[in-house]
Design a binder for these strands. Sequence first.
DNA 1: ACTCAGCGTGAGAGCGCTCCCACCGGGGTC
DNA 2: GACCCCGGTGGGAGCGCTCTCACGCTGAGT
Lengths: 360, 360
Amino acid sequence: MMNTSPPRSLRRTASRPSPTLEDLALAAGVSRSTASRAINGGDRVSPEAQAAVDRAVVDLGYIPNRAARSLVTRRTSSIALVIPEPDVRVMMDPFFAVVITGITEALRETDVQLVLLMSRTDDDSSRTLRYLRGGHVDGAIVVSHHEADSWARSLAQTGLPTIFIGRPWDTASEVTYVDSDNVGGGRLAAQHLFGIGRRRLATIAGPADMTAAVDRLRGWNEGLAAAGLPASPVAYGDFTTDGGADAARRLLADHPDIDGIFAASDLMALGVVEALRAAGKTVPGDIAVMGYDNHAVAETAPTPLTTITQPMVEMAVRAGRMLLEEIEAPGSHPEPVIYSTELVERASTAVAPTASAANA
Amino acid sequence: MMNTSPPRSLRRTASRPSPTLEDLALAAGVSRSTASRAINGGDRVSPEAQAAVDRAVVDLGYIPNRAARSLVTRRTSSIALVIPEPDVRVMMDPFFAVVITGITEALRETDVQLVLLMSRTDDDSSRTLRYLRGGHVDGAIVVSHHEADSWARSLAQTGLPTIFIGRPWDTASEVTYVDSDNVGGGRLAAQHLFGIGRRRLATIAGPADMTAAVDRLRGWNEGLAAAGLPASPVAYGDFTTDGGADAARRLLADHPDIDGIFAASDLMALGVVEALRAAGKTVPGDIAVMGYDNHAVAETAPTPLTTITQPMVEMAVRAGRMLLEEIEAPGSHPEPVIYSTELVERASTAVAPTASAANA
DNA sequence: ACTCAGCGTGAGAGCGCTCCCACCGGGGTC
DNA sequence: GACCCCGGTGGGAGCGCTCTCACGCTGAGT
């Protein structure tokens, strides 16, 4: 049966009796109540009392006991970053570093702490949910992935303030999220390849169970239509380099005459370039290739990749700020925020064949 | 005695306020004390009472209030991961993802939470220290970098259980750490380059204020000595690609005839290869190049890098476990743990010139 | 003059939990 | 038989904090 909690927890640490609010009040010559008000940016505190308390705080090295405060306020001054990702590899994605950096940025000057919740297995997943439901954090930021829909629903039920980074599947239940304009990004890709004169296009989309992948594909199709082009062949990859290479080979087998490929991630694009070269094609001479994400490797690759960039740090910062607001003023269901994307041109779609393409 | 006949107050999941231990006890027909014991893997609880409580836990969806528990036990069931790194870029290093993954792994099945403490500025740094000192966490893992010495000293004073990942500068104050054998790694590099017949060697060391860099350099020198080679030229880089390229150029200017370079990081090695190629040298034909870390790019680089690998995840897991033990049984100052390193051979030190070297 | 905001204050009541201690039986030991 | 030990139990006292409330005191309104 379910184990409620003899989870081995931690033993008492050697406690040097740290001063309590009572001690503080005594030292400042005021009552505990007044000390409390002064500590909390008190509204109704006389300047003298405030000064006395401030001095005592410094003298005693007073640090409020979070647990006690939390017990009565029902606030924990901490939020969770939920990473519902069974695959360890994904942590390697610089994406998470960026997200963490951004959220941390939003949290500074705030005394709110970031608790990391990674759930690799389904077991973890329910543990995590229990944790979130248990009121141990004031809010959560969920990095949206495949399973995001179930998370969205479960969390919505708890009423815990939650922001998703990346649109979750289940947007019906009034979830708030921050995302980039993946549709626009896809459109941009189509426009660009069309713009440099490519007409026999194809795309390699990401997994169909991820909103980002679906959106990019939709944007791509829209872009083609807007340019008066017919729908392009579509292959699917898993956002990895190998997956991209496989997809490129399939594409090439079915449509030997394509002259432009849009891969929905830079890693896939990398695989595409490799596969094309191996098949005797030049890039961008024979086939122009585009990626997505503006991943670090896009710039350092043998043939730097033209790609679509999204302001990831900004998105994470925004998600953090939105969560703080939502916690501060619950009930306000903020509108989703969508950041626009931009094209970054590099050698992989240079109009004229480049030196690096010539060596193939 | 109190009669518990009608199960009248069975507030199901619909109830607003989450059930307290009191509610649990009532539902289970025992006292609060007994319920508490049962919850905490009770020692002196009869099977019947235990079963009743277990059932009630499920029925009520009871989740213990951490704040209340923490208030009396003076434990928080959470540990901090401290990243004292002013430079945002460093977060991009997959290193951190690995560390987080490892610690998370050590913490699962433990109900201990990981809170992330990033301090980018000195301001943050003192805030962080205050936080740690405030008893908000039961222990800390510090990712050791430049400033690690001050951290080590400050934390040692607080008596907070702390484990460093990467040897801190100040090892005098009985700090516990987990590290890889950087000296051995450096030695390995020298051995390998010597082994493939290179005799005019040089190295690009990392910043002299990082123990890992210093140790690798020491190992390198030891390796040279053991092989009967004279001390090699040394240039310093900052662990970045550009830094590596710069250092390589300096090295080449002063010693045009070198035939082997050991860079203390893969990113630097990448820069080295670029710079050498730009200078008309072939790799590994003219000059064999080695990196360190077995970074992802070492494998995917145009010329895959021979490098030194260290079991980062294992190290992080170990650090996590050690911290838990130290918290469990304070006062036991565990010995530092040093993981051994291994050589990974790739094209950048292949004895015969490879195809990729021929295209230069 | 008398009242009445309204500010600054302090006493007191808990928040939900753990832990100490007193209690109660039953099964040993003398 | 008297004794004690010991497993199982419940009562009660807080842990350190916030928050409501009531209290005096001032200055303005009538």
